[in-house]
Design a binder for these strands. Structure first.
Lengths: 333, 333
DNA sequence: TAGACATAAGGAAGCGTTTCCAATCACCAG
DNA sequence: CTGGTGATTGGAAACGCTTCCTTATGTCTA
């Protein structure tokens, strides 16, 4: 059986195709009785508008694109899951674009903006790029999640400085005063988001406020990958004046710290306390104390902002929306 | 500046639109010289074919749909990541459809088959449905990953029976003879894949072959969710003749087992050994001994099969492609 | 009752491709 | 030189929708 088209609906409802289209698009210019008749015909035929035709004619794609790096990392997955779940009941499809580098990101967004394959875009932790080269950026609703690099667009993110303070204050309140830090390199040209830097600064502020000791030898800033955090941990914990607690700027790194500590025969938290950052799902199993940021919720809120923009033309303010942070005390402190 | 269309290319290359289209679609019916001229014009204008028009006219969407349940579970994410990475260099976009129930799955696939929003479909762990109601299923290339429920389609999956044997034989070879089992309920109407059942049967075969003791009180089949596995673990480990080792049919459940054992003051593996199934990323951090199935690779292979089908018309055989399993010995045995 | 104006509805044009058919051209055999 | 054949090309039609323009139908006011 052929897939029914708008023409079939029009014939069955004894109206013109224009009227059917108006019913589909909730135009007010239709008499209630006519609308009813058309809806019945749609129902009876099981008519579903052809998305390609709709897109070609009206420019609407019913697609929301999500551009994300590091698709495999749990914190990204959890944000993505939030996005997915919010889109679930909408009429929008979610297209996933994974990127590996700043260049790739630039190409991808350039393409998407010119090709108009999507009605809106969610940029998950986008790298720093020169948006001056993207003149048409303003025509497409874009919401940024977890990045300070696109201040001219609505952005949901956390206050990393406050997060660093929070973690440190918690460690201090537990009685640990000598605190080490393990984070990303500060000047990553591709994906450096400044998160590590702010969290570290927040830590320094908290230490200063409490009059706690600082020691630059306790602070390590590495690249990505497991081994670097492992190496740093080993170095820190081998010192004669080793830190009494370690603040890792992500839960994944904190797991490495836990592993290395255990391999070195140190007890957690008796010999060394550990706090992470993110509160990914696995942290619960690892009994890791951490700073929770609302990963799933942040995805949900991002979609809400974007849908309100697309559906109700409520363009959100181009500002940073700061998300709440909380300490989740578990077994490593 | 307006986005260039095929007409602009045709004008600039001094040819007709049909010729441009033939060049775009690699038809052989174009003189080499003409083809060259057209390609230059495309290059100069930065022309990119409009996907919507293409789809409306030619029926090709350049989209591959992935239908997956449990989007948040690590094993699914890892499969998905494999799929994503393989699609990365192709011209296909990946659209993610998450489903919650068998009904939802049925509706979704029905819609996709009639709407033709995708050129091909990957079904990740689809539930058991009545495919008789989907007469057009045969028109759309579909590859199934991790499910025995669609035997009339090419399917990549593991041999769960062999996996159960493998895990059990390994535990026996470590000297643990009293072995418990924690798995899903056997008759889940929605997503029961038979995996638990086959893994359990494999275990029973291995026990019988080795003459090891069996005890039905050591075997628990629960539903989804953390608490059920936790409860079962507690029950098992509270017995006076408690099992010396526990085989959990997923790593996630094994984590619960580890947690409960620890809370009960039991040492792993000295008091109770634990083996999981899947080898998700987190298992490495948890030092969990487990049966590794190639999650990421399975996604890659699925895409290879599908792309070969779409691009080269190599329709794969409608059979089960069995993926290899290996024991990953770590700290819990 | 007539004119003005709002509301409702029909349907052609247009969106940017692919594909099909017809036209043209080059070449060859007879 | 003529007719036939295959390769190459141009461009109309078609895909299924939205939108705009037009016409028809009320409805209200003076």
């Amino acid at each position: 059986m052929r897939v029914p088209t708008i023409k079939d609906v029009a014939d069955r409802a004894q109206v013109g195709i224009g009227t059917v289209s108006r019913v589909l698009n909730n135009s007010t210019q239709v008499r209630a009785e006519t609308r009813e008749r058309v809806n019945r015909a749609i129902e009876e035929l099981g008519f579903i508008p052809n998305p390609a035709a709709r897109q070609l004619s009206g420019g609407k794609t019913s697609v929301i694109g999500v551009i994300t790096p590091f698709f495999t990392q749990p914190s990204y997955v959890e944000r993505l899951a939030g996005i997915q779940s919010s889109l679930y009941d909408s009429d929008y499809d979610l297209v996933l674009y994974s990127i590996n580098s700043r260049e790739h990101f630039h190409n991808r967004i350039q393409n998407l903006l010119t090709q108009r394959r999507t009605d809106g875009l969610i940029l998950l932790t986008p790298p720093r790029i020169d948006t001056k080269n993207l003149p048409e950026l303003d025509n497409m609703p874009i919401v940024v999640l977890d990045s300070p690099h696109m201040p001219h667009y609505p952005t949901l993110r956390i206050d990393d400085l406050a997060g660093g303070k929070l973690a440190t204050e918690y460690l201090l309140s537990c009685g640990y005063d000598r605190i080490g830090f393990i984070g990303d390199r500060l000047d990553d040209p591709d994906f450096g988001s400044g998160a590590t830097q702010y969290r570290f600064e927040g830590m320094q502020l908290a230490l200063a406020a409490a009059g706690a000791p600082k020691n630059h030898r306790w602070y390590r800033f590495g690249g990505l990958g497991h081994n670097i955090a492992r190496t740093h941990t080993y170095e820190l914990l081998s010192m004669s004046d080793r830190p009494r607690a370690i603040f890792a700027d992500s839960d994944i790194k904190a797991f490495d710290v836990m592993n290395v500590a255990q391999e070195m025969g140190l007890r957690v938290p008796e010999d060394v306390a550990i706090i992470g950052f993110d509160d990914i799902d696995a942290s619960r199993y690892m009994m890791l104390t951490t700073v929770r940021q609302p990963l799933g919720d942040s995805g949900i809120q991002t979609v809400e902002l974007l849908l309100d923009w697309l559906l109700n033309k409520n363009e959100p303010e181009k500002m940073m929306y700061l998300l709440p942070l909380t300490i989740i005390p578990r077994g490593t402190t």
